[in-house]
Design a protein around this nucleic acid. Structure first.
Lengths: 200, 200
DNA sequence: CGTGAAACTGGAACGTGTTCCTATTATGGA
DNA sequence: TCCATAATAGGAACACGTTCCAGTTTCACG
């Protein structure tokens, strides 16, 4: 695409383009934090990011793409903030629960943001596969790292368990986001699932 | 509400009202079967059910309510068709998998319908709690019945396991519906989860 | 029967996601 | 520096969920 800067892993275009993209995602997160899914209106995002509506659609082909991309960026941030520090806990389930609690708390601290991002994730279709896959991989890696710290080889069961935990996480999160479950119940259900899967 | 017929468990109003309601749900299912979530357009439902748009909204306050109600009716049908016949399988996991396969296959036979109903379920907020709860109870009952045929007393673990399986079912179904997972993978993931939870 | 309330019809109107178009501006190679 | 091309701005237009309203029909009750 761009002739310069061809050594970066992902070619994000010129500095101006990177800047626009960042402004758009910032505006998305800001609006989602304030008022959730409904508040992320394409015209409002465009205005707050100081780009034209057509430009917004040039960068993100739909509201769903936009929100899932924003979710991905937030997730990367959370994943990075978890960092390389060893995860506290003596057993696999303790460590997994620690990670889940931390991530969930991060989301629940911003209920509107969590609602917007979860909704988008649930509504995304195949055209958002790439973005979704990114998020899925990050989550799986976080969980398997918690299950087996410092281990690179994983059994099929490890991955399967991580996936099941991810599924439960998503389902309960949807329940919470849509106001069908309290935060406490959400946490309790997740922890129960972890204990059922990782008996230690 | 209505003065007559006050002995029915759910007061569904006059025969004309029951008929309208049925016509609306029939139209919803028909349109969803043809073209999925997007094809269930309120104007189209109203026209096909031969009611005015305002009347449609009088019966179902939103497209989501409409679709979740339709899902509930389909689910009751599936649950009833499973009937009281003993569930085949020698172990709990075999029986649970049988039930899941059967239910999933029913949904996957109508991809558009499955997409519409799953989307609606995922998008529903607290205002649809009642309808959602109905579906959740039916699913839990189906699963616990498969786990412990003919048993009425259930441990907390039984219910928790059923819930986890339900969560996985929902998550994988979303993956399939949104084109992120194949039908085969969907089935495999669910069965893997069942085996991880019910080791027998 | 009449009557009044509730339900229904038909359709206009509004908000927001999405598309599209034209004029203007930035960009990168000759 | 100049030009061709792509990118952006600004905004009109369309689709569909939702709301609203005026007129009509249905229905239970006196």
């Amino acid at each position: 695409m761009s002739s310069t800067n061809s050594l970066t892993v992902e070619d994000l275009g010129s500095a101006a383009q990177r800047d626009r993209r960042k402004r758009i995602l910032d505006a998305t997160i800001a609006l989602a934090t304030q008022g959730g899914f409904d508040a992320v209106q394409m015209r409002a995002v465009a205005e707050q990011a100081d780009v034209a509506l057509g430009t917004l659609y040039r960068y993100f082909p739909s509201k769903i793409h936009l929100l899932v991309s924003a979710l991905g960026r937030e997730f990367e941030r959370a994943s990075a903030s978890l960092g390389d520090k060893p995860i506290p806990g003596d057993t696999a389930s303790e460590r997994v629960i620690y990670v889940l609690r931390r991530t969930t708390r991060g989301l629940q601290g911003d209920p509107h943001l969590a609602e917007a991002l979860t909704r988008a994730f649930m509504f995304a279709d195949a055209s958002v596969q790439a973005e979704i896959h990114t998020v899925g991989m990050l989550l799986t890696r976080m969980l398997t790292r918690a299950m087996h710290p410092g281990q690179t080889e994983l059994t099929d069961d490890d991955v399967a368990i991580a996936r099941v935990i991810g599924d439960v996480w998503l389902s309960t999160l949807v329940g919470w986001v849509t106001g069908r479950t309290s935060a406490a119940d959400t946490a309790a259900q997740m922890e129960k699932a972890v204990h059922l899967l990782l008996r230690d």
